[in-house]
Simulated assay, not measured.
Amino acid sequence: MSDVLDFTRALIEQRSLTPDDAGCQALIAARLSAAGFACESMRFGDVDNLWAVHVGTNQEPTLVLLGHTDVVPSGPVEEWTNDPFTPDIRDGKLYGRGAADMKGSVAAFVVAMERFAREHAGHRGRVALLVTSDEEGIALDGVRKVADAFRERGERIDWCITGEPSSKATLGDLLRVGRRGSLSATLTVRGIQGHVAYPERARNPVHEAMPALAELAARRWDDGYETFPPTSLQISNILAGTGANNVIPGELQVLFNLRYNPHWDAARLERECDAIIARHCSDYAIDWHRSGEPFYTPDGELRQVCRDVLKEFAGAAPEESTGGGTSDARFIAPLGAHCVEIGPVNASIHKVDEHVSVADLERLPDLYFELMRRLLA
């Protein structure tokens, strides 16, 4: 059994349901400390974060490998072929919650970093690992808080490689070079409850909100940006009424989300949405949640190195994409870092019987090692 496979299995065995790290970071820190990394535990609230740094001949540039040790719940255990926290190898695949998202990548990071520190002790700059136990949850006390702490103490990051499962069909067939921003809203429209037979004595919040919602849903926010698709607003939930068909409701609640490209920032989108709603609704409130701003890494040294390495591993130039949801790189990019995402195939993430190809997993440390070598050695 290979080192990376063995370590991935050890991490899967830890029931690290977000935001509980369940001891994963202690296992990681023990290995990296022995390899000469300075390890710092950064705990905020109930969230564990680990910052491990190896310094070469100088302090710059800094390359960070970014990951998370928390996982989503397994769902119905009886639907899994084996217990989700008992790693199992079948038909060339390693099964277990977190195998692909993203304990496999974290284990590969560690194995690659140990080798890099051993073979290139005099590398330039710094190579570092940052892992959190709050990526799959609300992401308030994880990398978001770490980034705030880094900003306060002047921590510089030049490049960041996130190990999120980004590949589509084969390892290395996609290089993620940006992510859209995510902005969520809870809209409450207040009316006056009454009998449907006497609408003049009530004020229907549903009727007031419908034109606003139609305008929000129909608006074309932009035509895209570079490789980003156009900004999209999706209404995900609408709740109103008492359950009776003869009562005008007194309140309507609507949940919607915007996934937006670098044409926008959260503050501007909030103002635009508020202006639309204000034209139609007389009494309302909006509670906004900013999950993260978009980021985009322009062509340069990091993208070129990643492109070259992935072409060698996949046999063809990778697709360079800004698709998908969000990742913790959204908190690192504002520090001035160029960020990309490279990881295993994502077809089974968050599903029953999540798995990763054993062959891909065993190649992953070599891929990350080669990226480190070309950037820092």
Rank of each mutant, 00 (worst) to 15 (best):
R268N: 04
V254W: 05
L171R: 06
G122A: 07
S166W: 00
I332A: 05
L233I: 10
L376G: 02
D6C: 12
P84G: 07
D265A: 03
L187P: 05
P19C: 08
W221R: 11
L130G: 03
V358T: 09
A30G: 07
P61F: 05
V345S: 05
V305M: 12
A22F: 07
D158H: 15
F85P: 05
Y225A: 00
V196M: 14
R118Q: 15
R190Y: 11
T132P: 07
G325K: 11
V64R: 03
L50N: 02
Y368F: 13
P318C: 10
S133Q: 08
R271C: 01
W264A: 01
D158F: 05
R219F: 06
T18G: 12
Y225I: 02
P211E: 06
D173M: 03
L130W: 01
E354C: 08
R156Q: 15
L11M: 14
H263F: 00
A121S: 13
A267V: 12
N261S: 02
V110W: 02
C273L: 09
L375F: 02
E164M: 08
K93C: 05
D21A: 10
A108C: 02
E320D: 06
T188W: 07
Y260T: 05
D70R: 02
A107D: 07
A26S: 10
L335V: 13
F37M: 06
L269Q: 01
L258T: 01
A278I: 06
K103M: 08
S184V: 11
R180H: 13
L183W: 10
L255Q: 15
A197D: 11
E312M: 10
I161V: 15
A314G: 12
T297H: 11
F256E: 02
N49A: 04
G137N: 03
L175T: 00
R201P: 00
V77G: 04
V64F: 08
P334R: 13
L255E: 12
P249E: 13
L27D: 03
A285E: 15
T322V: 12
P365E: 09
P334K: 12
V189A: 09
